[in-house]
Computed example of a mutant assay.
Amino acid sequence: MLTRMVTDKLAEYSYNAALAGLHYSLSAQVLQSSLTVAVQGYNHKLPLLTQTILEALAGFKGGEEDSELFRRLHDRLLKDYANDLLAQPYQLAMAATAHLLVVPYSTRDKLEAARTLTPSLLRSFLPRLLHQCRLEALVYGNATEAQAMALFERTRTALKRPTPLPAPVLRGLGWRVVSLEEGEEVHYRAACENPEEPNHGVQVSYQLGPQSVPLSTRLDLLVLLLKDEAFNELRTKQQLGYIVFCAASGANRHILSLSFLIQTVKDPSIALAAIDAFLDYARTYLRGMSAEDYAANVSALVDAKLEKPKNYAEQGNRYWNEIGKGAYLFDRAELEAAEAKTISKEELIEFLGACVGRREGG
Protein backbone atom coordinates (compact mmCIF):
# COMPACT_ATOMS: atom_id res chain seq x y z
CA MET A 1 0.00 0.00 0.00
CA LEU A 2 2.86 2.35 0.84
CA THR A 3 4.56 1.85 -2.52
CA ARG A 4 1.27 2.47 -4.33
CA MET A 5 0.63 5.73 -2.53
CA VAL A 6 4.16 7.07 -2.99
CA THR A 7 4.12 6.08 -6.67
CA ASP A 8 0.79 7.84 -7.20
CA LYS A 9 1.96 11.00 -5.44
CA LEU A 10 5.03 11.06 -7.69
CA ALA A 11 3.01 10.53 -10.88
CA GLU A 12 3.25 14.09 -12.18
CA TYR A 13 6.96 14.37 -11.42
CA SER A 14 7.77 10.96 -12.89
CA TYR A 15 5.75 11.73 -16.03
CA ASN A 16 7.98 14.69 -16.82
CA ALA A 17 11.04 12.60 -16.00
CA ALA A 18 9.85 9.87 -18.37
CA LEU A 19 9.53 12.42 -21.18
CA ALA A 20 13.19 13.22 -20.55
CA GLY A 21 14.19 9.54 -20.73
CA LEU A 22 14.27 8.78 -16.99
CA HIS A 23 12.25 5.94 -15.48
CA TYR A 24 11.85 4.36 -12.05
CA SER A 25 9.96 1.66 -10.18
CA LEU A 26 9.19 1.27 -6.49
CA SER A 27 8.17 -2.24 -5.47
CA ALA A 28 7.90 -4.59 -2.51
CA GLN A 29 9.75 -7.91 -2.93
CA VAL A 30 7.95 -10.40 -0.71
CA LEU A 31 10.42 -13.31 -0.85
CA GLN A 32 13.35 -11.05 0.01
CA SER A 33 11.33 -9.06 2.56
CA SER A 34 12.61 -5.93 0.88
CA LEU A 35 11.68 -2.67 -0.80
CA THR A 36 13.35 -2.10 -4.17
CA VAL A 37 13.88 1.21 -5.95
CA ALA A 38 15.13 0.90 -9.54
CA VAL A 39 16.04 3.90 -11.70
CA GLN A 40 17.35 4.02 -15.24
CA GLY A 41 17.99 6.56 -17.96
CA TYR A 42 20.45 9.36 -18.68
CA ASN A 43 23.08 9.14 -15.97
CA HIS A 44 23.58 12.87 -15.32
CA LYS A 45 20.05 13.22 -13.89
CA LEU A 46 19.69 9.83 -12.19
CA PRO A 47 21.06 11.04 -8.81
CA LEU A 48 18.42 13.77 -8.68
CA LEU A 49 15.61 11.37 -9.62
CA THR A 50 16.80 8.83 -7.05
CA GLN A 51 17.00 11.43 -4.29
CA THR A 52 13.54 12.79 -5.11
CA ILE A 53 11.97 9.32 -4.97
CA LEU A 54 13.62 8.39 -1.69
CA GLU A 55 12.81 11.72 -0.06
CA ALA A 56 9.18 11.25 -1.10
CA LEU A 57 9.25 7.79 0.48
CA ALA A 58 10.98 8.84 3.69
CA GLY A 59 8.85 11.98 3.99
CA PHE A 60 5.51 10.29 3.36
CA LYS A 61 2.90 11.58 5.83
CA GLY A 62 -0.38 10.12 4.62
CA GLY A 63 -2.28 12.96 6.25
CA GLU A 64 -5.82 14.19 5.81
CA GLU A 65 -4.98 15.58 2.37
CA ASP A 66 -4.29 12.01 1.22
CA SER A 67 -7.52 10.49 2.54
CA GLU A 68 -9.18 10.27 -0.88
CA LEU A 69 -6.01 8.80 -2.40
CA PHE A 70 -5.87 6.22 0.40
CA ARG A 71 -9.52 5.27 -0.10
CA ARG A 72 -9.07 4.79 -3.85
CA LEU A 73 -5.84 2.80 -3.64
CA HIS A 74 -7.03 0.78 -0.65
CA ASP A 75 -10.09 -0.30 -2.62
CA ARG A 76 -7.84 -1.27 -5.53
CA LEU A 77 -5.56 -3.24 -3.19
CA LEU A 78 -8.47 -5.24 -1.78
CA LYS A 79 -9.70 -6.03 -5.29
CA ASP A 80 -6.23 -7.13 -6.38
CA TYR A 81 -5.88 -9.51 -3.43
CA ALA A 82 -9.39 -10.86 -4.02
CA ASN A 83 -8.55 -11.42 -7.69
CA ASP A 84 -5.33 -13.21 -6.69
CA LEU A 85 -7.50 -15.77 -4.89
CA LEU A 86 -9.26 -16.42 -8.20
CA ALA A 87 -6.09 -16.90 -10.22
CA GLN A 88 -5.58 -19.96 -12.40
CA PRO A 89 -5.11 -23.18 -10.41
CA TYR A 90 -1.47 -23.63 -11.46
CA GLN A 91 -0.71 -20.13 -10.13
CA LEU A 92 -2.47 -20.96 -6.87
CA ALA A 93 -0.43 -24.17 -6.60
CA MET A 94 2.78 -22.16 -6.96
CA ALA A 95 1.61 -19.66 -4.34
CA ALA A 96 0.67 -22.48 -1.95
CA THR A 97 4.11 -24.06 -2.33
CA ALA A 98 5.78 -20.74 -1.55
CA HIS A 99 3.51 -20.33 1.48
CA LEU A 100 4.34 -23.80 2.81
CA LEU A 101 8.10 -23.45 2.41
CA VAL A 102 8.93 -19.75 2.62
CA VAL A 103 6.30 -17.06 3.10
CA PRO A 104 4.63 -17.26 6.53
CA TYR A 105 1.33 -15.83 5.28
CA SER A 106 -1.04 -16.60 2.43
CA THR A 107 -2.92 -14.35 0.02
CA ARG A 108 -6.00 -14.85 2.20
CA ASP A 109 -3.99 -13.63 5.20
CA LYS A 110 -2.91 -10.53 3.24
CA LEU A 111 -6.49 -9.81 2.23
CA GLU A 112 -7.70 -10.03 5.83
CA ALA A 113 -4.85 -7.79 7.02
CA ALA A 114 -5.51 -5.26 4.24
CA ARG A 115 -9.13 -4.93 5.33
CA THR A 116 -7.98 -3.58 8.69
CA LEU A 117 -5.46 -1.13 7.20
CA THR A 118 -6.00 2.55 8.01
CA PRO A 119 -4.04 5.73 7.22
CA SER A 120 -2.82 5.91 10.82
CA LEU A 121 -1.51 2.33 10.68
CA LEU A 122 0.30 3.14 7.45
CA ARG A 123 1.86 6.26 8.98
CA SER A 124 3.11 4.31 12.00
CA PHE A 125 4.50 1.56 9.76
CA LEU A 126 6.89 3.76 7.78
CA PRO A 127 9.21 4.77 10.67
CA ARG A 128 9.53 1.13 11.73
CA LEU A 129 10.30 0.12 8.15
CA LEU A 130 13.04 2.72 7.75
CA HIS A 131 14.51 1.92 11.16
CA GLN A 132 14.85 -1.78 10.30
CA CYS A 133 16.04 -1.46 6.71
CA ARG A 134 19.55 -2.32 5.53
CA LEU A 135 20.80 -0.84 2.28
CA GLU A 136 22.29 -2.64 -0.69
CA ALA A 137 22.86 -0.83 -3.98
CA LEU A 138 24.03 -1.53 -7.51
CA VAL A 139 25.15 1.16 -9.94
CA TYR A 140 25.80 -0.19 -13.41
CA GLY A 141 26.52 1.76 -16.56
CA ASN A 142 28.22 5.04 -17.34
CA ALA A 143 29.37 5.93 -13.82
CA THR A 144 32.71 6.00 -12.02
CA GLU A 145 33.29 4.41 -8.63
CA ALA A 146 33.28 7.86 -7.03
CA GLN A 147 29.96 8.74 -8.67
CA ALA A 148 28.46 5.42 -7.57
CA MET A 149 29.53 5.97 -3.96
CA ALA A 150 28.21 9.53 -4.06
CA LEU A 151 24.84 8.24 -5.25
CA PHE A 152 24.80 5.69 -2.44
CA GLU A 153 25.56 8.43 0.09
CA ARG A 154 22.66 10.50 -1.25
CA THR A 155 20.45 7.44 -0.85
CA ARG A 156 21.59 6.87 2.72
CA THR A 157 21.11 10.53 3.58
CA ALA A 158 17.63 10.67 2.06
CA LEU A 159 16.57 7.66 4.13
CA LYS A 160 18.44 8.91 7.22
CA ARG A 161 20.33 5.64 7.56
CA PRO A 162 23.57 5.13 9.56
CA THR A 163 26.86 3.85 8.15
CA PRO A 164 26.14 0.87 5.87
CA LEU A 165 26.92 -2.70 6.87
CA PRO A 166 29.41 -4.72 4.80
CA ALA A 167 27.90 -7.18 2.33
CA PRO A 168 28.64 -10.40 4.33
CA VAL A 169 26.56 -9.07 7.24
CA LEU A 170 23.61 -8.63 4.91
CA ARG A 171 23.65 -12.19 3.65
CA GLY A 172 20.75 -14.33 4.77
CA LEU A 173 18.35 -11.48 5.46
CA GLY A 174 14.78 -12.29 4.49
CA TRP A 175 12.57 -15.29 5.05
CA ARG A 176 14.09 -18.60 6.00
CA VAL A 177 13.12 -21.74 4.08
CA VAL A 178 11.57 -24.84 5.64
CA SER A 179 14.08 -27.68 5.32
CA LEU A 180 12.65 -31.04 4.31
CA GLU A 181 14.60 -34.00 5.66
CA GLU A 182 15.72 -36.70 3.24
CA GLY A 183 12.77 -38.97 2.49
CA GLU A 184 10.27 -36.58 4.10
CA GLU A 185 7.11 -35.82 2.12
CA VAL A 186 4.65 -33.00 2.68
CA HIS A 187 1.24 -33.12 0.99
CA TYR A 188 -1.08 -30.13 0.95
CA ARG A 189 -4.48 -29.94 -0.70
CA ALA A 190 -6.74 -26.89 -0.75
CA ALA A 191 -10.09 -26.14 -2.31
CA CYS A 192 -10.24 -23.58 -5.09
CA GLU A 193 -11.88 -20.26 -4.16
CA ASN A 194 -13.79 -20.28 -7.46
CA PRO A 195 -16.48 -23.01 -7.25
CA GLU A 196 -16.92 -22.92 -11.04
CA GLU A 197 -13.24 -23.60 -11.79
CA PRO A 198 -13.01 -27.04 -13.50
CA ASN A 199 -9.21 -27.33 -13.35
CA HIS A 200 -6.80 -28.44 -10.65
CA GLY A 201 -3.27 -27.17 -10.11
CA VAL A 202 -0.63 -29.70 -9.07
CA GLN A 203 2.95 -28.82 -8.16
CA VAL A 204 5.54 -31.36 -7.06
CA SER A 205 8.88 -30.01 -5.83
CA TYR A 206 11.97 -31.98 -4.85
CA GLN A 207 14.04 -29.82 -2.52
CA LEU A 208 17.75 -30.17 -3.26
CA GLY A 209 19.63 -27.73 -1.05
CA PRO A 210 21.44 -24.36 -1.00
CA GLN A 211 22.47 -22.95 -4.34
CA SER A 212 26.01 -23.67 -5.51
CA VAL A 213 27.69 -23.74 -8.91
CA PRO A 214 27.82 -27.58 -9.12
CA LEU A 215 24.21 -28.00 -7.94
CA SER A 216 22.64 -25.24 -10.03
CA THR A 217 24.53 -26.32 -13.16
CA ARG A 218 23.45 -29.95 -12.84
CA LEU A 219 19.89 -28.90 -12.19
CA ASP A 220 19.85 -26.60 -15.22
CA LEU A 221 21.25 -29.37 -17.43
CA LEU A 222 18.77 -31.91 -16.09
CA VAL A 223 15.83 -29.58 -16.74
CA LEU A 224 17.11 -28.83 -20.24
CA LEU A 225 17.19 -32.56 -21.02
CA LEU A 226 13.81 -33.38 -19.45
CA LYS A 227 11.49 -30.43 -20.04
CA ASP A 228 10.59 -31.21 -23.66
CA GLU A 229 10.17 -34.91 -22.93
CA ALA A 230 8.00 -34.13 -19.89
CA PHE A 231 5.82 -31.93 -22.06
CA ASN A 232 5.62 -34.65 -24.70
CA GLU A 233 4.74 -37.40 -22.23
CA LEU A 234 2.44 -35.56 -19.83
CA ARG A 235 0.69 -33.19 -22.20
CA THR A 236 0.87 -34.56 -25.75
CA LYS A 237 0.57 -38.28 -25.03
CA GLN A 238 -1.36 -38.42 -21.75
CA GLN A 239 -3.24 -35.17 -22.39
CA LEU A 240 -3.26 -34.18 -18.74
CA GLY A 241 -3.67 -30.50 -19.60
CA TYR A 242 -2.37 -27.59 -21.62
CA ILE A 243 -0.12 -26.30 -18.83
CA VAL A 244 2.78 -28.67 -18.10
CA PHE A 245 6.15 -27.49 -16.79
CA CYS A 246 9.38 -29.08 -15.66
CA ALA A 247 11.63 -26.40 -14.20
CA ALA A 248 14.30 -25.46 -11.72
CA SER A 249 12.87 -23.38 -8.91
CA GLY A 250 14.38 -21.58 -5.97
CA ALA A 251 12.66 -20.94 -2.64
CA ASN A 252 13.74 -17.49 -1.51
CA ARG A 253 16.03 -17.59 -4.57
CA HIS A 254 18.73 -19.68 -2.90
CA ILE A 255 17.27 -23.10 -1.99
CA LEU A 256 17.00 -25.05 -5.24
CA SER A 257 14.29 -27.53 -6.22
CA LEU A 258 13.32 -29.64 -9.21
CA SER A 259 9.66 -28.87 -9.84
CA PHE A 260 6.83 -30.24 -11.97
CA LEU A 261 3.66 -28.24 -12.50
CA ILE A 262 0.44 -29.39 -14.17
CA GLN A 263 -2.97 -27.80 -14.58
CA THR A 264 -5.54 -30.46 -15.38
CA VAL A 265 -9.26 -31.23 -15.30
CA LYS A 266 -8.42 -34.73 -14.11
CA ASP A 267 -8.20 -35.67 -10.45
CA PRO A 268 -4.92 -34.44 -8.87
CA SER A 269 -4.04 -38.01 -7.90
CA ILE A 270 -3.82 -38.88 -11.60
CA ALA A 271 -1.39 -36.02 -12.23
CA LEU A 272 0.70 -37.02 -9.20
CA ALA A 273 0.90 -40.61 -10.40
CA ALA A 274 1.85 -39.44 -13.90
CA ILE A 275 4.70 -37.29 -12.56
CA ASP A 276 5.94 -40.20 -10.45
CA ALA A 277 5.83 -42.54 -13.44
CA PHE A 278 7.63 -39.99 -15.61
CA LEU A 279 10.50 -39.80 -13.15
CA ASP A 280 10.91 -43.57 -13.36
CA TYR A 281 10.85 -43.31 -17.15
CA ALA A 282 13.27 -40.34 -17.16
CA ARG A 283 16.27 -42.47 -16.24
CA THR A 284 15.52 -44.86 -19.10
CA TYR A 285 15.13 -41.89 -21.41
CA LEU A 286 18.49 -40.43 -20.37
CA ARG A 287 20.28 -43.78 -20.62
CA GLY A 288 18.97 -44.18 -24.16
CA MET A 289 20.18 -40.75 -25.25
CA SER A 290 23.10 -40.93 -27.69
CA ALA A 291 26.45 -39.42 -26.81
CA GLU A 292 26.03 -36.95 -29.66
CA ASP A 293 22.63 -35.74 -28.43
CA TYR A 294 23.90 -35.41 -24.88
CA ALA A 295 26.93 -33.42 -26.02
CA ALA A 296 24.69 -31.17 -28.12
CA ASN A 297 22.55 -30.38 -25.07
CA VAL A 298 25.61 -29.60 -22.98
CA SER A 299 26.83 -27.26 -25.71
CA ALA A 300 23.42 -25.59 -25.85
CA LEU A 301 23.52 -24.98 -22.09
CA VAL A 302 27.06 -23.58 -22.28
CA ASP A 303 26.05 -21.26 -25.13
CA ALA A 304 23.02 -20.05 -23.16
CA LYS A 305 25.16 -19.37 -20.10
CA LEU A 306 27.75 -17.43 -22.10
CA GLU A 307 25.29 -15.50 -24.26
CA LYS A 308 26.14 -11.82 -24.08
CA PRO A 309 23.53 -9.54 -22.52
CA LYS A 310 21.58 -7.56 -25.09
CA ASN A 311 21.66 -4.28 -23.17
CA TYR A 312 22.63 -2.58 -19.92
CA ALA A 313 19.32 -3.49 -18.28
CA GLU A 314 19.78 -7.22 -18.89
CA GLN A 315 23.33 -7.21 -17.53
CA GLY A 316 22.27 -5.09 -14.57
CA ASN A 317 19.46 -7.54 -13.78
CA ARG A 318 21.97 -10.39 -13.72
CA TYR A 319 24.09 -8.53 -11.19
CA TRP A 320 21.07 -7.56 -9.11
CA ASN A 321 19.85 -11.17 -9.02
CA GLU A 322 23.16 -12.15 -7.44
CA ILE A 323 22.71 -9.46 -4.81
CA GLY A 324 19.13 -10.59 -4.20
CA LYS A 325 20.32 -14.16 -3.65
CA GLY A 326 23.00 -12.98 -1.24
CA ALA A 327 25.52 -14.88 -3.37
CA TYR A 328 27.47 -12.01 -4.98
CA LEU A 329 28.82 -14.45 -7.57
CA PHE A 330 29.03 -12.01 -10.45
CA ASP A 331 30.92 -14.41 -12.72
CA ARG A 332 28.35 -17.17 -12.23
CA ALA A 333 27.71 -17.62 -15.97
CA GLU A 334 31.36 -18.37 -16.72
CA LEU A 335 31.70 -20.71 -13.72
CA GLU A 336 28.55 -22.65 -14.58
CA ALA A 337 29.51 -22.90 -18.25
CA ALA A 338 32.85 -24.43 -17.25
CA GLU A 339 31.11 -26.76 -14.78
CA ALA A 340 28.64 -27.99 -17.42
CA LYS A 341 31.48 -29.27 -19.59
CA THR A 342 32.60 -31.63 -16.80
CA ILE A 343 29.25 -33.41 -16.24
CA SER A 344 28.95 -36.89 -17.78
CA LYS A 345 25.64 -38.49 -18.70
CA GLU A 346 26.14 -41.20 -16.07
CA GLU A 347 26.74 -38.58 -13.40
CA LEU A 348 23.58 -36.73 -14.41
CA ILE A 349 21.51 -39.93 -14.17
CA GLU A 350 22.85 -40.45 -10.64
CA PHE A 351 22.01 -36.83 -9.88
CA LEU A 352 18.41 -37.39 -11.01
CA GLY A 353 18.14 -40.36 -8.67
CA ALA A 354 19.49 -38.30 -5.79
CA CYS A 355 17.06 -35.47 -6.59
CA VAL A 356 13.93 -37.58 -6.33
CA GLY A 357 15.10 -40.26 -3.90
CA ARG A 358 15.46 -42.99 -6.51
CA ARG A 359 18.71 -44.91 -6.80
CA GLU A 360 19.56 -47.30 -9.60
CA GLY A 361 17.63 -50.51 -8.98
CA GLY A 362 15.49 -48.79 -6.32
Rank of each mutant, 00 (worst) to 15 (best):
residue 69 L to M: 04
residue 207 Q to S: 10
residue 286 L to S: 02
residue 140 Y to L: 10
residue 2 L to Y: 01
residue 203 Q to E: 12
residue 47 P to T: 05
residue 269 S to N: 14
residue 35 L to D: 04
residue 318 R to M: 13
residue 223 V to S: 04
residue 294 Y to C: 09
residue 79 K to Q: 15
residue 37 V to I: 11
residue 202 V to M: 09
residue 327 A to W: 05
residue 89 P to M: 06
residue 43 N to I: 01
residue 172 G to S: 08
residue 259 S to C: 02
residue 78 L to E: 12
residue 37 V to M: 05
residue 305 K to D: 13
residue 55 E to A: 09
residue 313 A to R: 13
residue 189 R to N: 09
residue 184 E to K: 15
residue 311 N to D: 14
residue 251 A to G: 03
residue 276 D to Q: 15
residue 175 W to E: 01
residue 36 T to I: 11
residue 327 A to H: 01
residue 192 C to A: 12
residue 16 N to K: 13
residue 184 E to M: 12
residue 330 F to M: 03
residue 261 L to E: 04
residue 349 I to K: 06
residue 258 L to W: 00
residue 52 T to I: 05
residue 270 I to R: 15
residue 328 Y to W: 04
residue 92 L to A: 07
residue 232 N to H: 14
residue 236 T to P: 08
residue 71 R to T: 07
residue 322 E to A: 04
residue 356 V to H: 13
residue 331 D to M: 11
residue 330 F to L: 08
residue 11 A to V: 00
residue 202 V to A: 00
residue 134 R to K: 13
residue 225 L to S: 01
residue 346 E to F: 02
residue 131 H to V: 05
residue 339 E to V: 00
residue 157 T to N: 12
residue 72 R to P: 02
residue 139 V to H: 02
residue 31 L to Q: 10
residue 226 L to C: 04
residue 149 M to G: 00
residue 347 E to I: 08
residue 197 E to F: 12
residue 327 A to S: 03
residue 295 A to I: 03
residue 172 G to V: 09
residue 267 D to E: 15
residue 278 F to W: 07
residue 91 Q to V: 12
residue 187 H to F: 11
residue 30 V to W: 07
residue 162 P to M: 05
residue 290 S to I: 06
residue 35 L to V: 06
residue 213 V to C: 03
residue 32 Q to C: 10
residue 252 N to T: 04
